[in-house]
Structure formats: C-alpha cells, structure tokens
Design a protein around this nucleic acid. Sequence first.
DNA 1: ATGAAAGCGCTAACAC
DNA 2: GTGTTAGCGCTTTCAT
Lengths: 331, 331
Amino acid sequence: MKAATTLLQISKILSLSPSTVSRALKNHPDISPVTRQKVLDLAKQLEYEPNLNAVGLRTSNTKEIAVIVPNLSGFFYGSFISAVEEEARRAGYSTIILLSGDDPLVEIENLKICRQRRVQGVLACLSARTASIEAFTRLKKVEISVVFFDKVPSDADEITVRVGDEEAAAVAADYLISKKKKNVLSLFADVNMSITNRRLTTFRQIFSSRSLQQNYFVEHATSSEAAEHALMHAWKSSHRPDAVFCMSDEILIGVMKAVHRLDIKYPGELGIIAISNGFFPNLYYPEITFVETSGYKLGQLAFKRMVLEFEGKTAPRDVALKAELIEKGSL
Amino acid sequence: MKAATTLLQISKILSLSPSTVSRALKNHPDISPVTRQKVLDLAKQLEYEPNLNAVGLRTSNTKEIAVIVPNLSGFFYGSFISAVEEEARRAGYSTIILLSGDDPLVEIENLKICRQRRVQGVLACLSARTASIEAFTRLKKVEISVVFFDKVPSDADEITVRVGDEEAAAVAADYLISKKKKNVLSLFADVNMSITNRRLTTFRQIFSSRSLQQNYFVEHATSSEAAEHALMHAWKSSHRPDAVFCMSDEILIGVMKAVHRLDIKYPGELGIIAISNGFFPNLYYPEITFVETSGYKLGQLAFKRMVLEFEGKTAPRDVALKAELIEKGSL
DNA sequence: ATGAAAGCGCTAACAC
DNA sequence: GTGTTAGCGCTTTCAT
C-alpha cells in the first residue's frame, strides 16, 4: 500500500534531473539514446504512470472531456457514448459521464463539475426541461468548448451536431406517400422540443407539397403509454388509420404494445414506420421499417467536431447527420 | 477567453491570505462570519470553482472513480452506470467510464488510464476473454480499490458484487413448477460462461428435487436468433412446450420474435418467464413475468461496497443481489 | 482569527 | 545533452 512511482523518484535513482527524465519519457530529441533507454526501463520496472492531475495542473491540458446525457435508458445515448469514448481514448482523452436525469438543476450541477475538473470540452444533450442555456455558454469564458448534440438549443450561435431531423422526417413522409397511405396517424413527442418541431414542420411540408388526396393527423405523445393509447383510440375511432408514423423509439414502443394488444396485423391492416436508432425496430416480427438516426455515428461526429474546436479550426456550426431509410417490410 | 478564477485571485482582491480564503470556502470554524461572507460573495460573483486537479494533487484525494464495462449495447450496463453515477455524484465523486469492448488489451490500457488519473477506485466487469486478473490486483499496490461486478473472477480473494444467479434460477424454476408446467423449454446462454452454469445448475436442482412428473428440456442459445429458432423448432416438434424459460434478455428477445412470428398466444398456449433487468419484459403486451436482476440496484450496491473499502471497513467479500419475482401474467 | 511557507508531481523556459 | 528553476492552484502545518 504505497503511493505510485513519481518522476522524481526515477530521477534520483538514476542520478538524473527530473527534467531529463521527463524528456526521456516523451521521446524528446535532445536526450541521448542510452539515457532514454535507462529511464524507459526503470519506468517500466517501477510501473511508472504520469500523474495526470499534476500534468493537467501544470499544462492546463487535462485531456478530459465530459458527456452530459439525460439518461442511459435507451440505446441512443449508450451508443453515442460508446463512440465518443472510443474516439476520445484514441486521441488520448478520458471521458467523464454525467447524467442529468432530465433535471435542469442537476444539469447545472454537472456543469459545475465540468468547471472543477477543468475538462476541455463538454458534449451536451439538453434535458427536456432546460429553459436557458446560459450556464452552458458561460463555460466558454473559461475556455471550455461546448458542443450540443441531439437535443440542441435553437440558438444559431451554438455548435450543434444532430441527426438530420428534417431529412429523416422528409424521408419518412415521402415513403408514406409513395406507399399510397391515405390516413396516417402521425405521432410526435413533446411539442415544445425543437427536435419535435423540426421533424413535424418538415413532415407537414412534404405532405402538403407532394400529396393532395393523402391525409395525416398529428398527435403528440409524451410517453410510450401516451402513444399506446393514441393508437388504441384512433384504431377504434371512425377514422381508423392505415399507417402510423412514430417520431421516436419511445413512441414506437408504445405503438407496438397497442398493436399486440389489439392484435393488429401489420403491414396488412396497418403500415408502421419510425425514426429510430435501429435497435428497437429489430425487436419485433415482422421487423419495423425505419429511418435510421445512428447514435454511434453521431458520437463520432460530435467528438471530431469538438477536436476541431480545440484546434481553433473553422467548421460549420451546425452539422446534421444524414438519414437513411431501412426497409424491413412493416409498411 | 480567460482562465478560471483562482483562490489566489480572490485572496488578493480581498487582501487576505490564500489560506484564509481556502478555509472560508469550506466553512472552517476559525474564520469569522464577516470574512467568510465576503469570501463567499466574491467567489460566487467570480464564479469560482476549485481546481480539482490541484486539490487532487495536493491531497491525493481525486474523488474520481472509474467504471469498466464491456459495452453499452444493452440495458444492463447502462442502468448499472446510471446508479453508480448517481450515488457517486451524491458522494462527491466523478465517474469516468471506460469501455473494454470485450478486449483484454483494451482492458489493460484502461487500467493504465485509471493509474494515470489516480482514480480512487475501479468498478470492473471482466471482459468475456480476460484470462488473468493480475493487472487488476496490481492496482491495490498503488491504493486503488477494485470491486468486480457482474462478470467476476472466481478468485475468492477479490471483492465481488453480482446478481444472485442461483436464487434467480431457483425462483423461476419454483414458479414454473407451481404453475404446473409439464414441458418447459429452458433456454440458457453459452455453456462456458460461469453465469450460465450457476443458473443452470440451480435450475436443474430445483426441478429434480421438487417435481417428479414435470419435465424440462435445456437448450443453449448463444444469440437472440438462436433462441428464436430454438422456440420455432420446439413449437413445431412433437413435443410442443407449454412454457419457456429465458435465462437472459437476449434470449427473451429471440423468443418473443418467434412468438410473434408463429402467432403464439400467451399465456394461453405458452407460458413465458425470463430472468431480466426489467426493461424488455415491459415492452410486450401482455408484459412478461420475470425474475428481476436489477443493474440499477447492483450499481448502488457496488458503489456502496467500494466506499466501505475506501473507509477501510470490513464487509463481505462476495455480495449477491437478491432476486425478486415480478408477476406480469405471461405465465 | 489570520498569515507564511512548504510542497503535491510535473513541465518548460532558460542556462550551460 | 543535461541541469536549474519557477510555478500551475491548492491545502495544511505551524506561527502569531
């Protein structure tokens, strides 16, 4: 139970100065091969690992980034984080993960932690109930870069990386039209979220511009249960839909429960399409046709965008991941 | 774009010494209320946040822990991490997350990062291909506590926290027997995993000790697809099962696909029970009866166990989470 | 009740 | 090619 080896210890054993050891360890060209080797050997033998707290303090280069997500109870954020962690590790960064629980107060607390740790960047997905992003923007004052992802603020000044909401909604709407659906139950999430609005707006545009006789009716479901009931209600109404569009996995899950509950046959009686990360559509039989919005790809994109910011390079402030239709036969 | 406020800056502005400011900030009793208030006010105004790199360096108390998991592509680890992060934050710790991708080499690299960050503890789930835990045990030499969870080493000396596999299997078997099932298709994962063996052994014991006339037949499915086909095959055979037991979520998912594919009515034609984290059983209608092995609860347990270790308190080296039957009506 | 001083482990001018 | 030195921001004796 002793503390870890330090640079000073190595330097003393070898009768060298700390600076020489430091340089040897990072292959500085000034150091003679023979000295370098001696240092490297001893370092390995003593299991020397640099104290990143000291390095971070000295260089203000902590090589740490933080990811703030609302939760981990879906596949989207998990795959996002996987991608970030992978890319980050490759680039020598550690990833600290912070959950907001969709609580703006916890979000603020998380940002405090980011300051305290002197992380170099924050990848943030806004909580559903965040009213102001002021606490985020203030981070820039202390040289912490902020890249928003997925649930991004509408503020055009911010760096954002998100799935191509407009495109995804357009692809789905196009497909519904091409399949000649006449009466599409269109389930969207909370109307106050910008992601909902972007998807909804485009969805409406496509329908009104491309189709004259095809109908859709929009409902907002803020939970799986709400989506489940929305479909059950519509199914029993006089205006039974011939297709359902699900804006998210959460909504798809509710819809599928209703489908099984009412024993609805799809695609026969009802066509189903969703915007999804791709995991849940694969859970059902038949599998569900969906427009893919990959959390993994988004994570890669987000980290790379953040690094560009670190390097001070100019890059687009708003990046959207392109959407892809995956046909599975449910519509 | 200036650096963050430091303690020294505050001390200069108020013409106080750094030590006084430091004490005021942490409510040291020696400090006069008047001074304390002045410091607190200015700190708030300047958005002062202590530099945890400096604190960690000074006190060797980094208040950081690491969690190593194979992946985030299921709900189990996600909920485990959620619990850990919550508990950790409450206790003033940050959680850095490290993915091994089931690769022992990456695992080693992750442990190096733990050393470099001088984390105080590591919560580790072994990768499926880890042959030796030596690199883990060596961490203790530098005062880093290690608590294994879920996939734990068989070494009895290690601190482990896991779900009660034996109990979970027993509860499921008991329930199947009490429901008078005569022909139970029992689906287990890879026979080489210790988790599979613990569950299978107990399952067999319960059936042979408690029931004389009730039958079960075991099959091993190493993927969702394999489970799907196992049920389809059994269903069409001359020995059609009247119940199916799923050892894991992965297997349950495959089973449910087969159920929908063959349009099997449950619980009428087939009873279904699973050992699960609790998310997937809730996805279907009717919902699936399961024996709960909560990743969330396990996370809470693991963190608390680690804190006990930090405090040098004695506690059991091997903790198993108790299993609970959640009846949903699918059997 | 407050201050002075040392030092945690490392890096980076600047010397030689 | 190697050493000296100062200092990153903080805590913590030990004085006063």
